[in-house]
Design a protein around this nucleic acid. Structure first.
Length: 285
DNA sequence: CGGATTTGACCACT
DNA sequence: AGTGGTCAAATCCG
């Protein structure tokens, strides 16, 4: 395990301990039940993050991809390109038929029954793939746990300018992305990642915690999802369009010094090495 | 009629 | 061989 990975786990463990201490401080106060729930969720998130980072298979896989490419293994062009793409995992309350309107034009090109999942996964590519060479792709799968929620995975970003409407922000969302193959020569992509990380401080303040777990950071995207009753008031106000409120922290978090200390910890831990990026961002849809 | 969706086949990877 | 991702012909729909 490289130094950065150890540091990340260290930081997360510290955060978990602090949350546990706060939890015991609140034990005998029944009026702050919601705070307790919040802390439980924080603990859950920390646990998930630690588990993810402690999964040597994932980390090993990430490095192996680098090795393969450096050895000039010839692969199908599409497959190779994918490994360099930004991947966003996205969960949130969805709309009917999985037709989550993110402001872009998508064309469905496939559907697949996924082993271990009740619901099939739909494959969408940008309508302008051929006209504008836009390589954005997304996968949409209805959550097994809550059919009203869709899990969306974005691969690549839009290079087209065409949107059905102005890009929308989901009523609530959090995404996690992993760039699996950032090589020193990929300066541009690396810079993009740093920009994403740069904005992470603020982004971390935009969501109300909920259990979020990824069984397999490399490809899995299962999780305890965001239910409407767990969303911040701002997040539940509208399913259409970007609202400034969406970028506002839930009061329970904003007003909590303790929560701020956690965010400070997160500020520290996002300074990862380039081969493993973990971040949260709010996508424009 | 043209574009979008469906769905079985095919391919790459493990 | 199993699985996930993509292709492409058939079909649907406005």
């Amino acid at each position: 395990m490289v130094m950065e990975e150890k540091l990340v786990i260290n930081e997360l463990e510290q955060g978990r301990e602090l949350a546990q201490r706060l939890m015991s401080n609140l034990k005998d106060t029944s009026s702050i039940e919601s705070s307790k729930n919040l802390i439980s969720e924080i603990l859950s998130i920390y646990q998930n993050a630690i588990s993810m980072l402690d999964d040597k298979k994932v980390l090993k896989r990430s490095r192996e991809i680098d090795d393969k490419d450096s050895k000039n293994v010839i692969k199908k062009r599409q497959v190779f390109e994918k490994k360099t793409e930004k991947v966003s995992f996205f969960v949130g309350a969805g709309q009917e038929k999985g037709s989550i309107d993110d402001g872009y034009c998508w064309r469905k090109y496939g559907q697949k029954e996924i082993h271990g999942s009740i619901n099939p996964r739909g494959y969408f590519r940008c309508t302008h793939r051929f006209t504008q060479n836009c390589l954005a792709v997304k996968q949409v799968q209805k959550s097994d746990r809550d059919p009203s929620i869709f899990e969306v995975k974005y691969v690549g970003s839009h290079t087209c300018n065409n949107t059905t409407t102005s890009p929308k922000t989901p009523n609530f969302s959090i995404s996690m992305f992993q760039q699996e193959d950032i090589k020193p020569t990929k300066t541009e992509e690396a810079m993009m990642s740093l920009e994403d990380l740069e904005s992470t401080k603020n982004i971390f303040r935009t969501f109300s915690f909920s259990n979020y777990e990824i069984e397999n950071a490399g490809g899995g995207w299962k999780g305890n999802l965001f239910h409407e009753d767990q969303l911040s008031p701002a997040a539940t106000t509208s399913g259409s369009g970007i609202t400034s409120e969406v970028a506002t922290a839930p009061a329970s978090v904003e007003n909590s010094e303790t929560a701020d200390s956690y965010f400070s910890s997160l500020d520290n831990i996002i300074d990862f090495g380039p081969d493993w990026l973990l971040s949260c961002d709010v996508l424009n849809w």
